[in-house]
């Protein structure tokens, strides 16, 4: 539904799509330049969300199809990070050897989001760029501490995923890849059982001097992920973390802001159940 302030609500649909010009640039810089030079333009990846945006009343005069940019489908393992191209579909990404090898827990979580049909068509980049609270990859990437790597007409731009979710990317910035840091001993867990109310992702790794470190990202159907850093300073090993999971989880959720809630679920439950679930996540992940 589209809201036209001066008129009212109008139910647009794919049958009322306004015409657009289709562009198919061959390089990322060319794509970013094109987007910067064209008013009302949009990048097109898997397409699954763009049509939904049309249905919400958004429209573009120019659609820039990225399918020729093969390098956006690359997955690259660097020494300290995993780079996942924006056009990698959920299906291919979660099944890729590189992702499973580097971040098995993350790959397992990624393989469970949305549904098979959407996983096959939708891309990681499209999923992120849609900036929808109900999509799941932002939860996973928030916990993983990922950074989004953009190409802009003015050059490359890096943005932490949380900053991107809060404010969006600059106009015409092209998401090239998602950088997930490969921290020593990194492991990952995704708690999806409270769907459709909320989900929460946990990342644990060996921090300074090999001491455990971690963060949890909690999101609801209506609210973007909130990242809570776990205070693990007093723990020398994962075994200790596991042993004290309950206390750690309870303490971590004390940092959840009192206004973190949505129209369906109150802060009290999100805080209390979130802590319980985190404690269980810690118990099964910290080994």
């Amino acid at each position: 539904m589209k809201l036209v302030e001066s008129a009212g609500l109008i139910a647009t649909s794919f049958r009322s799509l306004p015409p657009f010009e289709l562009h198919r640039p061959a390089g990322a810089e060319a794509a970013a330049r094109l987007a910067a030079s064209l008013p009302r333009s949009a990048y097109f990846a898997g397409g699954t969300d763009l049509v939904a945006q049309y249905n919400e009343g958004w429209s573009a005069d120019h659609v820039i199809d990225l399918s020729r940019l093969k390098f956006l489908r690359r997955i690259e393992r660097q020494c300290d990070a995993l780079l996942i191209g924006a056009l990698v579909t959920h299906w291919n990404g979660a099944r890729s050897r590189k992702v499973r090898g580097a971040l098995p827990g993350f790959a397992a979580a990624w393989a469970r989001i949305a549904n098979v049909r959407v996983r096959m068509a939708a891309t990681l980049g499209g999923n992120l760029m849609a900036r929808r609270t109900r999509y799941e990859s932002p939860v996973l990437l928030s916990a993983a501490g990922a950074t989004l790597e953009f190409v802009t007409a003015a050059g490359p731009l890096s943005m932490p995923v949380s900053a991107f979710l809060a404010s969006g990317a600059p106009a015409s910035a092209l998401l090239e890849s998602v950088r997930i840091p490969l921290l020593p001993g990194m492991r990952f867990d995704y708690e999806r059982s409270p769907r459709p109310i909320a989900t929460q992702a946990l990342a644990l790794w060996a921090g300074d001097e090999g001491r455990p470190a971690g963060r949890v990202a909690l999101a609801t159907e209506h609210v973007f992920p909130r990242v809570l850093d776990l205070d693990l300073s007093g723990y020398a090993s994962l075994a200790e973390v596991r042993g004290d999971a309950h206390t750690i989880a309870a303490r971590s959720f004390e940092a959840l802001p009192a206004d973190f809630a949505d129209p369906v679920t109150g802060n009290a439950w999100l805080r209390r159940a979130g802590a319980v679930l985190l404690s269980r996540q810690l118990k099964r992940t910290a080994w």
């Binding site: 539904m1 009212g8 609500l9 109008i10 139910a11 009322s16």
Partner: peptide, 8 residues
């Protein structure tokens, strides 16, 4: 084809 304007 018909379409309607709805109250916001």
């Amino acid at each position: 084809h018909a379409k309607v304007l709805r109250s916001p």
